[in-house]
């Protein structure tokens, strides 16, 4: 059995808003083994990024809500780490590539300034000097296949193309040897050929460094090509988990099935119906299974209680009452 790297147990994240709470994450569970490539798929607004920001402890703070549940990374609960420990964790163990590379780079500092600071603070205790740090920055840009690193270090984000910015973001995220990389829809804002290059790059770096990757994507095609195991998320919790081939050959949860129906075919066989309705209001989320208002196969019990995970076989589980008898 492989070593468990990250174990998210019953994670709840609520945001305080005027007059109440947004109950965004509602008991999220997820497990990542070391060196594994895991996909996380779901509609916009279903809580994928929120879950990952909770793992990095970079959720927006002002509302003063601490997440509940557990995020165990290598036997430590991330949620109870002290500031210094969490900073060390971010430097050396977990990293994240943000959705939009343009927004993730500070517009008023050069790439060099930002990259060097990341190296400077993570290598502070190693006593490395400016010249060595700069060489490391140059090397990190070479590692993400950026030509002419010296020029890029002196550039501001606006002087680079979208693809280059995305590569710079990867260089920033992987400044140190990390064990887990969270890639939040990398390359979504870029055209498909560049997106493919970026995914290849992430894949290659993960292989070279024996790094686990959580790949968040809307695109089932991307998930199918680049991951080994998939979590499907809906409205704040996981609804299905399976190895990638299994999920695509035998999707069980009605939401997963509907999601697959939505994929446009290149062969153009038929028009898709889509999923009726939309992601629920987190202020008044539906009771029981949060998918029930949109579910074509809903039953009486779906409105009453949140379904637990039913283990279908060794590598397939689903949170749906349809499969109650099969586990």
């Amino acid at each position: 059995m492989k070593e468990v790297l990250l174990d998210i147990k019953d994670l709840q994240v609520h945001f305080r808003v005027y007059g109440g709470f947004l109950k965004v994450l509602n008991g999220t569970n997820m497990r990542v083994y070391s060196g594994e490539k895991v996909g996380l798929v779901g509609e916009t607004g279903c809580g994928k990024t929120t879950t990952m920001k909770a793992v990095m402890r970079i959720l927006p703070k002002p509302h003063g809500i601490t997440p509940e549940g557990k995020i165990i990374f290598k036997n430590k609960n991330v949620l109870s780490l002290k500031t210094q420990e969490i900073e060390r964790l971010r430097r050396n163990e977990i990293s994240m590539i943000f959705q939009d590379p343009t927004a993730a780079l500070n517009p008023v500092f050069t790439i060099g300034e930002q990259l060097l600071d990341v190296f400077r603070y993570s290598k502070k205790n190693d006593g490395l000097k400016g010249k060595t740090l700069k060489q490391m920055a140059v090397d990190s840009l070479r590692a993400v296949a950026l030509p002419d690193p010296e020029r890029i270090l002196a550039s501001y984000p606006i002087q680079l193309s979208g693809g280059m910015r995305q590569r710079v973001c990867i260089a920033l995220a992987l400044a140190n040897q990390k064990q887990l990389l969270i890639a939040d829809e990398p390359g979504t804002s870029l055209d498909v050929t560049i997106q493919d290059q970026i995914l290849r790059l992430i894949h290659r770096l993960a292989e070279e460094r024996n790094m686990a990757v959580i790949l968040i994507s809307h695109s089932l095609g991307v998930i199918r090509e680049w991951t080994e195991r998939v979590y499907v998320m809906y409205a704040g919790s996981m609804v299905e988990e399976a190895t990638t081939p299994k999920l695509f050959s035998q999707p069980l949860h009605p939401y997963t099935q509907a999601l697959m129906e939505c994929v446009p075919r290149l062969t153009g066989m038929k028009t898709n119906e889509g999923i009726p309705g939309r992601i629920p209001d987190y202020f008044f989320p539906p009771t029981g299974c949060r998918f029930h208002p949109r579910c074509p196969k809903k039953m009486a019990i779906c409105q009453e209680e949140k379904p637990p995970f039913y283990q279908i076989d060794d590598n397939h589980q689903v949170a749906c009452y349809l499969y109650k008898g099969e586990s």
């Binding site: 900073e87 971010r90 943000f98 939009d100 927004a103 993730a104 500070n106 990341v118 920033l172």
Partner: peptide, 13 residues
């Protein structure tokens, strides 16, 4: 995002 990203890469608060 750029505030969160620097924080996420271990730059002190």
């Amino acid at each position: 995002d750029y505030t969160y990203s620097m924080r996420a890469y271990g730059v002190p608060e």
